[in-house]
Nucleic acid binder design. Structure first.
Length: 116
DNA sequence: GATCTGACCACCG
DNA sequence: CCGGTGGCCAGAT
């Protein structure tokens, strides 16, 4: 019996799988996630996939930000505030501009994997 | 299957 | 930096 595998499209399943592999304290942009999955033009699809998460999942969705290291989650649902909180809780620091230094926190699956 | 929406991105001025 | 535009694509209706 699988942990959390509702009936989802393979695309969504792959997004969740990759996001799950992002180490603590590291982040990935929507575009990067899409590219790593072999769909360089599906950045929006990644956002859609994450927005469709239900309760009880084990996907660290907060480790996905936009290409500028900014949080683009819906503020009206106070999701953005939660995301920032969770990231800071993992040691990710935000600059005064409210952005993350992608040069430092952007993660890449292969070699430099600092599983923390 | 047509149409709309959006937690994206690149390009331009 | 800010705003506008076009393109892309997965989901929802």
């Amino acid at each position: 019996m699988r942990p959390y595998v509702p009936d989802v499209s393979p695309f969504r399943a792959s997004v969740y799988a990759l996001v799950r592999s992002i180490p603590r304290g590291r982040v990935l942009s929507y575009g990067a996630v899409a590219a790593l999955l072999g769909h360089p033009r599906s950045a929006r699809g990644v956002g859609t996939a994450l927005s469709g998460l239900s309760e009880g999942h084990d996907v660290p969705w907060w480790r996905v930000v936009n290409r500028n290291g900014e949080i683009t989650s819906p503020r009206i649902h106070h999701i953005a505030a939660l995301q920032r909180k969770l990231l800071e809780g993992e040691g990710v620091k935000f600059r005064a501009s409210g952005r993350i230094d992608m040069k430092e926190y952007a993660w890449s699956p292969s070699p430099d994997s600092r599983t923390d």
